[in-house]
Amino acid sequence: MTDTDTDASPPTSNSSRVLIIVAAMVAVLLVGAAGGMLLAMSRSNDVTPGPDSVDVGFAQDMRVHHLQAVTMAGIERDRTDDGELRRLAFDIESTQLAQASEMAGWLTVWGRQSLPDPGAGHMEWMSQGGTHEHTDALGQTTTGAVDRMPGMATSQELDQLRAATGRELDVLFLQLMLRHHQGGLQMAEYGAQHASAGYVRNLAKKIVSSQVSEVNLLTDMLTRRGAQPLPPA
């Protein structure tokens, strides 16, 4: 730059060089900008995780997972005759609803969809470009998207829960919630390790620790009622 300025030759002779320099600069800028934009899609900087990041995938899918726990706990809280279970259901319902709302807030601030793409499946953000495996609700291992996340109840199971009463209701609730908690651990553990934002990893860790201890509690409550956990499938 400097020697072009100081040498100050007749402008006409320089025009093609100026053109080349400007064009080269434009090209470099464009490629650089494109590279940066593409990089930002899968990586996350401190401020805004990209649309394909672990943070966004975790928040979207964990919202779906949590909101079903909220639905199941709401049914139990509303209909059980057992004070101990009503208290537990209320605890799960309010905790997971608050966490789902917190994650919705992150997604809004990040400028991302608050829920996963319709019909696109879940958990693909856990595959690390096809090298990391996870399972679906039926225990099938994959590196791609799954239709139903582990632990998620089917619509039929939810209908059964709504139709049940008394001991049958309590046992089915405990069974479904136990399986739901265990199924969510895979995602929470992955999020706790791989999310880029500290507050995302922190919530994921809290989900892991609280659900591990609740898994023990739910198992214990099932045993006391003389019932068995559901198979994972």
């Binding site: 064009a23 090209a27 470099v28 464009l30 490629v31 900008a33 494109a34 934009m37 593409l38």
Partner: peptide, 12 residues
């Protein structure tokens, strides 16, 4: 070169 760069940018 510029066209190529423009193409890359547009794709991104």
């Amino acid at each position: 070169v510029v066209l190529l760069a423009g193409g890359v940018f547009t794709y991104a």
